[in-house]
Amino acid sequence: MIKVEGLSKNYGLVKAIDHISFEVEEHQNLILLGTSGCGKTTTLKMINRLVEPSSGRILINGIDITKEKPETLRRKIGYVLQNYGLFPHYTVAQNIGIVPQLLNWEKQKTKSRTLELLEKLHLPADILNAYPSELSGGQQQRIGLARALATNPPVLLMDEPFGALDNVTKANIHAEFLALDELKQKTIIMVTHDVQEAFELGDRICLMDKGEIVQDGSPSELLLKPVNDFVAGFLKEQQLLLEFKTTKILDLWSLLITSRQNNVEPIINAEIDLWTLIELIKKQKSEFVNIQNHKNGEVLGLGFEAIMQAFYQYIKSK
């Protein structure tokens, strides 16, 4: 849906972005990951023309984005900033209603859409008339997201959207983010320097360094088949955690040794990743779970030990 071809950006003699190309499919969530200064934010900003590239081109649905006026283009792309960028002199309602207003929506339509978004983002309706400075960081972040989603644009660009939040709030918002139906319908490009966040939220990750894409692949590809030492080194510190997060029970299916069935527990979908499963087991009394492979309908009763064994075997075989 979004195609980036041979994109470069020079500031004087400095090559901020050096001839990069990638593609994002519809409804995919692509993460631009890297340390600060690697060019990920510049890349993002070129997609809604906040920054104009020195060379190369960007196509959305096959159409070159320079064919349109920047304002028209931007009104069709949601944008979420690290510091939220809420207008301090506007109320929450006015902030969310800004793009609808620019597109001359009817007031009633804007209002019902605003209320719908507040509900989806678990915000109380009585903050509509509050000013951004009266809200908590988490609330401001959600309003920023609501503003970007107001006109239901197909594409969403997010620049370190959770960067300013504390870890607890961040974890909650991540969970909400994944659960939000509305976002599942979006093509998203998100910039982050947070490896965990990238692995948690991304369908695909472009790991960038010095203006180039070092590796472009699914989270498990990056983790298990790093193209070079840079990628391995970048992920090393959180290796185990990431492996838990990227490995699904389904991946281990052939390696699993069945234990006894546990009749009481609900049956869990084998699409679940290992990390979430461990979290689940922690919360329940028994260390046994029932898991169903939806591809063939098979249900296995599994114990924690068995799962771990299968996991280590799986990692070794990679």
Binding site: L50, E71, Y79, F87, V99
Partner: peptide, 9 residues
């Protein structure tokens, strides 16, 4: 805030 304004079109 200016960037946000630009980005909203």
């Amino acid at each position: 805030v200016i960037e946000a304004a630009l980005a909203t079109g």
